[in-house]
Amino acid sequence: MKKYGIFLLIIVVIAGILVWITSSSDRMDLTENIHLLVLVLLIGFALWFGYRRIRSMNLGQPVEDEMSKRIRTRAAATAYYSSLYLWLAISYFGEKHHIAFHTAIGLGILLMAVVFVMAYLFHSARGLNDE
């Protein structure tokens, strides 16, 4: 169960997206298309993450170790710090361009996830040798 938990989560997210697409209006506007694109990117990241975990497990190695935990912690810290400025920008442009409240919240949550993924990839590539 633990091994395939992430794939179950991905299936639930994909099912949610399909329900959203089929229940929304016939033609999706630009904002909805951007949301969909971001969701697809996040699902791609989750699939890659899940694949890595299963590969480690099959090799008899832990799915998480001290380095992966430290990378995740640092990515979370970077994402949190960046998100403060992200919400500030959303608040400013939301006011200026009269973006609906629920759209701004949805966009902010999605972008926070994107910032986390980017921070995770950045720290994974750069390593942690400055501690």
Binding site: L59, Q61, D65, M67, G127
Partner: peptide
């Protein structure tokens, strides 16, 4: 496997 970490950690 001997030290209980992932291969990526050894690479890094």
């Amino acid at each position: 496997r001997k030290v209980g970490v992932r291969r990526e950690t050894i690479v890094f």
